[in-house]
């Protein structure tokens, strides 16, 4: 039983990071109906930016802020240069283009920072906390990760419910024509979606870096987990992304604990396949029947 609880505890913070990455994917899907397969590529790139800034300043917070800024810029650039021009041509094209961006970013990162795996020291201890006579598989760094995730989710909720920008984004995502008629600048709202997603992804990247290390490909597996969580959550739903992001983290931690960590991608694949088979629109998604 204690092992079970230990495994669960160990999965919470990785689940939080998966949740953040899934959030980024959902934010973009809501705004432009594109699954951004380059999301983890962007996050990897901004994490390298953070690494560089941190090497220069030695400050974790400044590095995080730099990553967030870079994430915003990168999100905007990808939206403007790649997605906006391609979107109407064909749906396959948009998917392929995001993979093109992923490949480019990984290669560019390899060019700029080399292919070696680099560590990323956490700002607070990553060792298990000692409490009540034992060491728990839960560190102060996990507390930080979960804290940041909760703060972000609250912030996003407030943004979407209390601010004009958030309302405009929701209106543009829900019904662009109506939104346009009511004076919303739709294309700007869509760009906000990409910027926001870029920032959230950047935070996720910096947070995952101490546990996964940083290399041009080290976040690939995170893409699979985040996509799984986002799809099971319904792709449209922020709540779904967070819920199933954390859920995916827990399941993976349990599977890795009881069997072997190399099973994790297979388990994610099985989860994804089962979900797509049983409920193609996800648990929180809405069913749209196509008109004939």
């Amino acid at each position: 039983m204690t092992t079970f609880i230990d495994y669960l505890l160990g999965g919470v913070s990785s689940g939080a990071i998966i949740a953040l990455m899934a959030l980024a994917i959902v934010l973009i899907w809501r705004s432009t109906r594109v699954v951004n397969f380059a999301q983890v590529g962007q996050a990897m790139f901004t994490t390298y930016v953070a690494l560089t800034v941190r090497d220069a300043t030695g400050n974790w917070i400044i590095a995080l802020l730099a990553a967030i800024a870079a994430g915003a810029v990168l999100g905007l650039v990808v939206h403007w240069l790649v997605i906006r021009p391609v979107k109407r041509v064909d749906t396959s094209g948009a998917i392929i283009a995001t993979f093109g961006v992923l490949i480019s970013l990984q290669a560019l990162a390899g060019m700029l920072w080399g292919g070696d795996t680099r560590g990323y020291a956490p700002p607070v201890s990553n060792d298990g906390i000692q409490l009540a006579g034992r060491i728990w598989p839960f560190s102060w760094y996990d507390v930080l990760v979960i804290g940041v995730t909760i703060a972000l989710v609250i912030g996003l909720t407030l943004l979407f419910t209390r601010t004009n920008i958030g309302l405009a984004m929701r209106a543009s995502a829900f019904n662009p024509e109506v939104a346009r008629l009511s004076g919303v600048r739709v294309s700007r709202s869509l760009a906000y979606g990409w910027i926001l997603a870029g920032m959230v992804g950047a935070i996720a990247g910096v947070l995952v870096a101490p546990t996964s290390q940083v290399s041009p490909n080290s976040f690939d597996i995170l893409l699979v987990f985040a996509f799984t969580a986002a799809v099971i959550g319904g792709l449209d739903s922020l709540v779904g992304a967070v819920t199933f992001g954390i859920g995916t983290g827990l399941v993976i931690s349990l599977v890795s604990g009881y069997s072997d960590s190399s099973n994790a991608p297979v388990v994610a694949l099985v989860l994804l396949a089962l979900n797509l088979l049983l409920k193609p629109d996800g648990v929180f998604g809405h069913h749209h029947s196509r008109a004939v």
Partner: peptide
Amino acid sequence: PVTNNAPNLLYGLLVVLVVL
């Protein structure tokens, strides 16, 4: 690092350009 990654960078950029 440039030599190793140049082909992939080219592929990625070309894919985006071709799609667009």
